[in-house]
Design a protein around this nucleic acid. Structure first.
Lengths: 232, 232
DNA sequence: CTGAGTATACGTGTATACAAGTATACAAGT
DNA sequence: ACTTGTATACTTGTATACACGTATACTCAG
């Protein structure tokens, strides 16, 4: 397995390795169940085992990597339970965040900035859907939700949701592997933002539930199509 | 700083170190702002730097340890913002968990077991309060909430809440350092459990808000009393 | 006496070396 | 042929050695 070497920056090698490996797992370039050899990764990324181990430990704590003690590690199988649990946590937190934000952010400068950015994101997402660019679409989706959450101004919450999204997005990547992108997803985002602006809490929560819950129906199909990727 | 060496078990040295250090931070035996030297910890625990670094990295990811790149690490200052953010996340998740559990667990065996355990915990907590045993009280508090959450059966959620509780409990330890334990806290738990049994969702959420929100009022007093512990 | 500049000490970040445990393959006995 | 025991290979877990970067203290010039 070959990776494009990460860019040099202020980050430590361990951090870079973390991001690289995590991305590879979520985009399924490292397949669920595949065994991971620290030496192999170290060679691929042209660094030693130490930062690799640093990265892997973080991924273990996120449950994206499983550990067979004294034997080896493997990228975690996709677990329907884990995906649903993550989805539940995320739904709970995003809903709460909306309720929290519903109060007083309408006039702030932060809001003005966010509104502009969200408009841009929605447009770009439309283009990505048109071109069936799954990777870009999911990246923009990520950014959209992130942007919305930032309005609530709770960094801790944001971080937790980020972790939950790891498991969810991996599943979505799998779903998107053979699912065509529709404009409807973009429209859901647009409507979400509309209701948010109108402070329609219940509407927002309901939409979120629908938006995030749609995945559930995909499990049987994907289980059948990628039997080796699932476990539980 | 001296630690009692962790018990031998199936856990790796890194895991043991993690638990030991985390506990020391939360119980304030390692003070907020105190700089951490990997060598020092390694000597204290009679192991090498490697497992220490493993443990510290996890604590960094929990924001219980801050990192000054290429300089040193320090146990994170108590941040009012962080505590409140964690509190918010926890409240959101516990509330959702109650709503989730409100459905169909009343008849399950799991529930029967939990009810017995909760009864025991409430009793023991009463005794701990009587004897002003802060450490034991908080441990039982932890177990109480954990037990309640397990009824919802969402491991992922449980884990997130566990992390949030790290920051909250540290603050509570500080508060308890000179606050007398009252029976009222135990009564709050009892009432919480009563309303849970009655499926009084709104009542549960309201009680939780009160139960978890009480900390807010403590900030000014503690800030004044332990100025060196706070930062933000 | 003060401030800039250099040298030194110290701690982390990274690499490598070593130890310990598990699985596999091979051999020997039944 | 099959089972059981032993040896070997391989990977992780841990320890140690090295490199890099920051801070501090000292020196020397003004």
């Amino acid at each position: 397995m070959r990776f494009t070497s990460a860019v040099s920056s202020g980050k430590s090698l361990g951090e870079q390795a973390y991001e690289t490996i995590r991305d590879a797992i979520i985009t399924l370039r490292l397949e669920p169940g595949q065994t991971i050899y620290e030496n192999e990764l170290a060679d691929s990324l042209h660094i030693s085992r130490t930062p690799i181990r640093d990265a892997l430990q973080l991924l273990v704590s996120e449950r994206l990597v499983d550990i067979l003690p004294q034997r080896n590690k493997q990228v975690a199988y996709i677990s329907e339970l884990k995906v649903k649990e993550s989805s539940f946590v995320r739904l709970s937190l995003e809903s709460s965040a909306f309720r929290l934000a519903a109060g007083d952010w309408r006039e702030t400068e932060r809001y003005a900035k966010a509104e502009k950015q969200i408009g841009r994101l929605l447009r770009e997402q439309g283009e990505a859907a048109e071109q069936q660019d799954v990777v870009e679409f999911l990246r923009l989706d990520e950014e959209f939700h992130r942007c919305i959450l930032q309005l609530a101004g709770n960094e801790t919450l944001l971080e937790v949701v980020y972790h939950m999204r790891g498991h969810l997005n991996r599943f979505r990547y799998l779903a998107m592997k053979e699912l065509v992108l529709t404009e409807s997803l973009v429209h859901e985002h647009e409507e979400l933002f509309e209701r948010l602006k109108k402070r329609d809490e219940n509407g927002v929560v309901k939409l979120l539930e629908h938006h995030l819950g749609k995945l559930d129906s995909e499990f049987p199909r994907l289980r059948e199509q990628f039997p080796g990727y699932f476990k539980d």
